[in-house]
Design a protein around this nucleic acid. Sequence first.
DNA 1: AATGAATGAGAATTCATTCAT
DNA 2: AATGAATGAATTCTCATTCAT
Lengths: 204, 204, 204, 204
Amino acid sequence: MFLNKRLVKYINFAQKYNNLAKQKVDIDFIINQSIKLFRIKTYHNTSMSDIAEACGLLKGSLYHYFKSKEELMGKVIIAVHEYFKTEVFTFAFKEELNGVDRLQLLFEAAQIVFVNKKTGKMYGNMGVESAMVISDFTPLLQSFFNDFFLALKHIYQTKFEESIAEELAERSVAEIEGSIMLSRIYDNPQYIFNTFERLIDRIR
Amino acid sequence: MFLNKRLVKYINFAQKYNNLAKQKVDIDFIINQSIKLFRIKTYHNTSMSDIAEACGLLKGSLYHYFKSKEELMGKVIIAVHEYFKTEVFTFAFKEELNGVDRLQLLFEAAQIVFVNKKTGKMYGNMGVESAMVISDFTPLLQSFFNDFFLALKHIYQTKFEESIAEELAERSVAEIEGSIMLSRIYDNPQYIFNTFERLIDRIR
Amino acid sequence: MFLNKRLVKYINFAQKYNNLAKQKVDIDFIINQSIKLFRIKTYHNTSMSDIAEACGLLKGSLYHYFKSKEELMGKVIIAVHEYFKTEVFTFAFKEELNGVDRLQLLFEAAQIVFVNKKTGKMYGNMGVESAMVISDFTPLLQSFFNDFFLALKHIYQTKFEESIAEELAERSVAEIEGSIMLSRIYDNPQYIFNTFERLIDRIR
Amino acid sequence: MFLNKRLVKYINFAQKYNNLAKQKVDIDFIINQSIKLFRIKTYHNTSMSDIAEACGLLKGSLYHYFKSKEELMGKVIIAVHEYFKTEVFTFAFKEELNGVDRLQLLFEAAQIVFVNKKTGKMYGNMGVESAMVISDFTPLLQSFFNDFFLALKHIYQTKFEESIAEELAERSVAEIEGSIMLSRIYDNPQYIFNTFERLIDRIR
DNA sequence: AATGAATGAGAATTCATTCAT
DNA sequence: AATGAATGAATTCTCATTCAT
């Protein structure tokens, strides 16, 4: 190597300086950018290049964070799951509220994920459809839906006994997911809204 | 036209005979093979090569029948839709039966598509999930779900007035689709069975 | 064969009847359709399918007339050559006219091939460019240009001695071909017109 | 900026050094290899595979540099244009020389492109013919011929007034291009040589 | 951590040509 | 003569992944 050590040091310093100027790139940032892209373009139609570009990185650099696109997708699903846990399902366990209020808050929080508040239109593809298409991710989806189910069951238990609460929860999850699907197919959020209303009425 | 009818008939027959003699496959065969593959492997993970192989053809030969993979997928969705029209939705309009029976028959016919009777397990991915991921196919999916909705509405109208029948139909479609999704995610047809039972109970 | 002879006869008759209704398809017809297509779309961008379609035939049927696309192209070049011989170059040998008139008539006839009289715009690609790109056709092109050269030389010999007439002919061919090229590149027939005028002036 | 200029220089140098170390080829190398192939084999008969092989790369690697074969061809035409600007047309503007000398030098430089000095034979097909066949490239060809025309006009203006210089330039371009075509068709550079001589005589 | 050139496998598609009928 | 299904080789292009620097 013909570059002397002092120079190398300067270069490293300069690079660090440049990086500081850029958007901080960490795993979470990449995951969030990926979520955005997957929603708009689908897992299959989003290339590692696209993701890299959205992160201000180059393709190869992503492989420092994830050893494959599938691993990244897995992390994305987990991140979405985590979001739902802390921002949506959590309302189910606000013991200071009654069941109706909890359900209402939970649905309001969920809505944000699917419906663009400004335009009133459906957001693009959610991870679920993309994920369903890849069987490797079923355990992660199962885990997600377990939590979804448990949250609703917990709310229903404020009014019903366990076995009924369980049945209601299962039905509700199915109804909600089905209506999300319809909303997306018809590009009309009304199906979700109707379902949410119906479910709230039912618990009343 | 100077050819008499009997002759035309003979000619048609002769042509058919010719076709049978040379033709290795026909469009319907390709579509059916494609459906099988798409169910197992997903639209994205099924290559034209795979389809060709399943048909005993070479890749290029498929392009006699479909000018692109997307066109083939479109035809696949239409074929599934057609199947549902003639084999599933049709029970909704058997006016000689009561609503409960119609629903029961319709659900039984639908089940066959999703659940492997022999193994009792879920079949693989259906076109719907694949299709959802490609926005070009939404009109076809809308058309499918329109028919699904109308069939259920027609059944519910045997017991309820129109506006209620409509609401019930919408709910039912959502519930069914959601439960199919859950059944697939948990690889357990029980969710669909439960939903079908519940819906039949409800109309009783 | 289960079809009786009488029937076969009828069928043949019926087919013949159908054919009579169609455009008569013979080699010249195919060649003319091909010329049209090659001019618009280039040799490389015109498929045998395109040609067949333009002739009301199916791809495979073309192979009754030409054993390959290249052979067809060869025949096309020859046909164009023939056209030029009988419709364009021929004016060079109208011994009853003077040189100027012959040149004028020859150029007028040539113009028709390159410039659309109605729109005043250049026609698309001529065979020459397409042909140049395939070295197998150089003998045919040489033959074409030999005749072109001889025609002009013959005209020039009405005013000049042989060696000068030869030189002028060679120059003229080059100038004309170059200006056709420019006219095509700039999509403006003026370059050809200018050249024709200049050449007529020169002989005067 | 806290990095002093000397450092920046070093860094640039270091980066260049890095690039040299890893890079197998660069854009210019690919373009030059492509020019060679297009000349011998035509744009249509040269595959991306051929080009890759000529560059010691794999097919896919080319797409780092060009997003399509057409883009590559565009760059090739521009490169040829650039070559003509700096190596051929440039002689037109050597104000210290008289018109005859400029023309002579320009033609000598041009000859090198078309005629193999060693064998005395014509080189294969040049990009121009290939390009002519693809309408997307006409703007690039127009730009090329604009410069060609301006160079010749500039030379003619040493002896003639502008309008005459213009006419002569247009004629000369046509004559040269036409004679290149003839030289190629007859595989005999004499046509170009004759034209060049004639044009030089004319300006004398 | 980041680069980005290179890989290499595979995708969809095109098309001239063949051939049994 | 005509069909048109089938071939099969080639072509452009994509993309996840690797790796030397």
